[in-house]
Amino acid sequence: MTEIIDILISASFWAAVLRIASPLIFATLGELICERAGVLNLGIEGIMVFGAFAGWMAVYAGFGLWPGVLVALLAGMAFGALHALLTVPFGLSQHVVGLGITMLATSSAYYAYRLALPEVTSPPRIDPFQPLHIPVLSDIPWLGQALFSQTALTWAAFGCAALVALVLYRTPLGLAVRAAGENPQAVEAQGLSVAAIRMGAVIVGSGLMAVGGAFLTMSAFSSFFFEMVNGRGWICIALVVFGAWKPGKALLGALLFAGFDALQIRLQQTPMGQLVPYQVFLMIPYVLSILALILMSRRAEVPAALMTPFNRGER
């Protein structure tokens, strides 16, 4: 117990929570946008892999950090466009297409990586985003280190959550997106195109997923490894459910989840933790995700038209 308290009062723990949460926030928001518009995007895992690769590769090729983020974003949007094309106008199974996109994006990243770096055994490093020093705030004892020593991408993740909430609930565009996921017939009756709204949502959402992946290679670590995304995409799908399809709650869910993850990493190092096989600790994120789904199952406010293709020909 004292070990847990020691961990919870250390500033580095809280800094780690924000860092671990960042990629989850981006990708969860991306998935949330897709699902609010009525499209389940199982391409998330692969799009994150490709984003992690593309952003890192762009920096490695000398493009600089922010252009790297842009490359990841655009690559994610391209995979999103493919997903959107197949699932929206063609109305193909969102499960099958999503898993296909995950396989395509993952293997494309690995293929390109092997082409670019055929011989390397340990992946080359880039200079990742550095923590921003914020005048006054970063200098506050403890708090400065715990909360205000993050990279620009972490701040962007939180800004993104606020922006998505604002657009979704305070703008006509957001209303149209939510309506496309709840009652597409009503959207068409307003003279708007359900297909256009859904495709736009999937493309933008996929872009965010890729930025979430890019956070891993450009801010959290500084290299690209195979299997580095390691199920984070699937966890984000669980976080969307846990957050009841609301950006604010999804953000809290990601933070809570990151808290448990940061805690398990530190508990592994304690004398008590040494007695438990490390695999048990590594299982915790996945087990928590399943528990979160079970917990929310009764209260789920699923978008009514989620996974229901809309064809103008049918009434």
Partner: peptide
């Protein structure tokens, strides 16, 4: 690179579901 196989199978999957539709 051998990952060409995975790309081809993912592409075949996506092309095929579209073709069947």
């Amino acid at each position: 690179p051998t990952y060409i196989a995975d790309i081809l199978l993912a592409t075949a999957l996506l092309f095929m579901v579209l073709a069947i539709l």
